[in-house]
Structures are given as C-alpha cells and as structure tokens.
Amino acid sequence: MENNMGDENKKLYFDLSEGAKAQSESLKDQSELKQVWDGSQEDFYKSIIRNQQDDIGRIGRYFRDELAQELYRMRISLQNFTNRYGDFEELRCLRDSLSTLVVEIRNKAVLLYNPILNDLGIFHAVDEAVASYKKRFGFTIDTLLDPQLRELHHQAQVHLFKLLTAIFQYLNDESPSQAISISVQVIEFEILVKVSPFFQQGEALSVSKLENSPMRLMKIAELYNARIMNDTLAAGILLKLTI
C-alpha cells in the first residue's frame, strides 16, 4: 500500500512506498528545496514564468538595441565604402541583405520585447498593433478595452497582448470581413475576449476562407491557455482567459 506524506498547504508530496531509504532521500530533497524556495508550489511556478519573461525581454532588448544597431552600422560602413571606391553587384546584394536582416531582427525583437507595451502599457500597444493592421492590410479592428486592464500585473498584460495579436493575425487571414470589433472585459479573475464581425449596411456574412479555421483558433487558444466558449464568427467568437 502506497504511503504519502506531505505539506497540504504547500502541496509538496513525498513517496515513501519504497521504505526508509526513499523517505530519507525525499526528506533530503525537501530540505534542499526549502533552501531555494520557501513558498507554495504555485508561487514557485509563477516565479519561474516571471524569470522566463524577464529573460525573453532581455533577449529582445539585445536584438533591438545592440545586434540590429551593429548590423545597421555595418550597412552604413559598406555604403561609405561603395561611395568611395565604387559600387559592385556583390556589394549591392550584401548591402540589401544587411538591410533586410536589420528589419527582420527588429521585427523579431518587438515580438520578444515590445517597447510600447513595456513603457506605456497594453492600451497603447494594442492601438499600435491595430494601426499597423489598418496601414498594411486595410484591416480595420475596432477595440473596446476594459479600463481594469491597466490594473493587471505587467506579465498578465504581456500574455493578453500576445493573445490579442495572435487573434488579429488569425482574423486578418481567415475573416471574410475587412472590419472586426473586439471587446475585452475583466470579470474577477477572468478576461473575456469577444470578436464580432463589423459590416457595412447591407453587407452579408460569407463563409470562412479556410476549412481548417476552427482548428487554427483552437491552436491559438491552447498556446495562450485560453478557453474557447464559442468559435463561430457569425455568432461572435468568445474566449476566456484566466489570470
């Protein structure tokens, strides 16, 4: 018969089914763990997530502030060289490649570390993303954000922003409409994200562009730990995110 011993408050359990040796080793592990972390298991996991987010932010800042800048300086040096000694096809290709690489690195850096989100909060970051989709694709996103989002912990804002931008891309690719309304509401410890098509008068809802659209939405929800309450655009997509 298996015998378990543990701290009910901290949810730490030790298997003693193999006898005294297992008990001794488990208690030793418990002692070593307490030296590192003296809190609940949930807080321990949250601390790991926060450290990961901090690491991601540092990588993003490195890409944006150091690596991209260094590549840009290389591109300027190459331009100065060609201005002095003449341009060649190989040098033009290298210069164009450096320019493209700088843009790609800066775009990736924004995904890892969004300066507007980190400095000004989720409202400004969402506004920037919405404006970008309007400018690049002509895709209009009308947003209604709960003022309580300002009170969310920074990491919760980052998580929500990543979910919203994934939904933006999904809708831009899949939606038959060129305009979408998204509302975000905070209710206790849950965030409700509702998506509705926004049509001009007399415009009708057509079918989704791709048959695997619901599957893609499921993958997005799974990635960001959101729960799909409704997945049909006609009735309004509804997702719930627990914070």
Rank of each mutant, 00 (worst) to 15 (best):
E70M: 03
S40H: 04
K21S: 09
F44A: 11
N83M: 15
M5H: 14
R106F: 02
D38H: 08
S40Q: 05
M5E: 08
L98A: 07
S26M: 10
Q41F: 07
G19H: 08
D7Q: 03
L27H: 09
N4H: 11
S99C: 07
Q35A: 14
S24E: 12
N80Q: 13
Q23Y: 05
V102G: 00
N3S: 06
D43H: 13
D15N: 15
I48G: 01
I56P: 01
N51K: 15
K10S: 05
S97V: 06
N3D: 02
K108G: 01
F81I: 13
V102T: 06
L101G: 04
L71R: 09
Y13I: 07
M5L: 13
E89L: 14
Q41Y: 07
R73H: 10
F63T: 01
N3R: 07
E70S: 08
I49Q: 10
F14Y: 08
L91E: 07
V103F: 12
L16H: 09
S26K: 07
A68L: 02
Y72R: 08
W37T: 05
L12V: 14
V103P: 02
Y72G: 00
K28E: 03
K11R: 11
D29I: 03
L94K: 07
F88I: 13
L16Q: 13
G60N: 00
Q79C: 09
F14V: 03
I49W: 08
R84C: 10
Q30G: 00
Y62C: 04
S24Q: 14
F14K: 00
E89W: 08
A20T: 13
M5R: 10
D87P: 02
L98N: 05
D87I: 13
M74Q: 14
F63Q: 03
Q69F: 00
S24Y: 03
G57N: 15
R58E: 09
F14M: 05
I56Q: 04
E8H: 08
V36D: 04
I56T: 05
E90I: 15
N3H: 10
L67R: 06
Q52K: 13
E70R: 05
L94R: 07
K46L: 08
Q35C: 05
N83P: 03
F63G: 00
D29E: 12
I56C: 01
Y85T: 07
T100E: 12
Y72I: 00
K21R: 09
D29V: 02
R64E: 03
R95H: 13
E66R: 02
A68W: 00
G6V: 04
D38G: 04
A22E: 11
L91C: 09
L12R: 15
S24G: 02
E32Q: 15
D7A: 02
D38R: 07
I105E: 02
C93G: 09
M5T: 12
D55I: 15
N4S: 06
N9K: 14
K11W: 02
G19D: 05
L78Q: 09
D38V: 06
E66P: 01
K28P: 01
S40C: 06
K11E: 09
I59W: 02
Q79W: 08
F14I: 06
N83V: 06
Q23T: 06
D96S: 13
I49L: 15
L94W: 02
Q35S: 11
I59F: 04
Q52V: 13
S99L: 06
L27T: 08
F44W: 11
G6M: 04
F14N: 00
R92K: 13
K46T: 03
Y45E: 11
L33K: 06
Y45S: 10
K21E: 10
I59C: 04
L33Q: 04
I56H: 01
